[in-house]
Write a protein that binds this DNA or RNA. Structure first.
Lengths: 115, 115
DNA sequence: TCTATTGTACGATGTATTCCGTACTACGAT
DNA sequence: ATCGTAGTACGGAATACATCGTACAATAGA
């Protein structure tokens, strides 16, 4: 079973978190995870970039500690590390994800991946 | 009297604000302005970079709408746009500036510039 | 075993960012 | 008029970042 490295809750860096959130595509990912709790495969996000770019953005989010990624077969289950983030940076996620701030880029259609 | 361009309160972009806050030097500036309300000349911040780099960071903050810059003689009075930011992105400033998150790089000594 | 699906690795490219030094402007004070 | 102070403009160097295409790895299912 493959697995991916994640920073511990106590290791989260504000620098990395803010840099990760500064990109609109990554904010779209985080916004979707926040709006649709649970786990979602990378392919469910309808991002306006290629697969390899998508991989890059998910990795940035994981390495910053914003999301957790667990393999399930060939897919990856992505989830938001809400509790860890709220513990380390209280209020930050809520502030960034306020509805008015979430860019509704693509409406994320055709999702069929609930766990 | 020289003057500098600022985005209107309603024009603030979350993208630009988060990018601006992602840099530790700029967060140091914002943190100092938040901790010491009022206006402060650029030279009062004891930043670990040269004058020209300092100018660059202040401009990024101004163009993102985080600070206001008004000439007074040859100096510039910098102030935090707290109200505009709280109106557009409620909770964001507080979350980013939580004491534990503010890197105490240099203690900012020898300040003699209260208005 | 073969095939399709999901995502990764790697290298390339263009752009943006950070930082510097030097020369300059604007202003106040002498 | 001259000088010092505060900050800007400009150009350059190093680095980082977003993006892509192609080739590959891992897994599930037929």
């Amino acid at each position: 079973m493959r697995s991916l490295a994640h920073p511990e809750k106590g290791e989260l860096q504000l620098d990395a978190v803010l840099s990760a959130l500064a990109d609109p595509i990554r904010r779209q990912i985080v916004g979707y995870l926040a709006a649709s709790p649970g786990t979602h495969a990378c392919s469910a996000f309808n991002l306006p970039v290629t697969k390899s770019t998508s991989t890059h953005h998910f990795r940035v989010l994981r390495e910053a500690g914003l999301i957790r990624q667990d393999y399930q077969g060939t897919a990856i289950l992505n989830s938001l590390r809400t509790e860890d983030l709220d513990a380390q940076f209280p209020g930050l996620l809520q502030a960034v994800l306020k509805p008015t701030n979430v860019a509704p880029l693509s409406p994320v259609v055709d999702v069929h991946d609930r766990d």
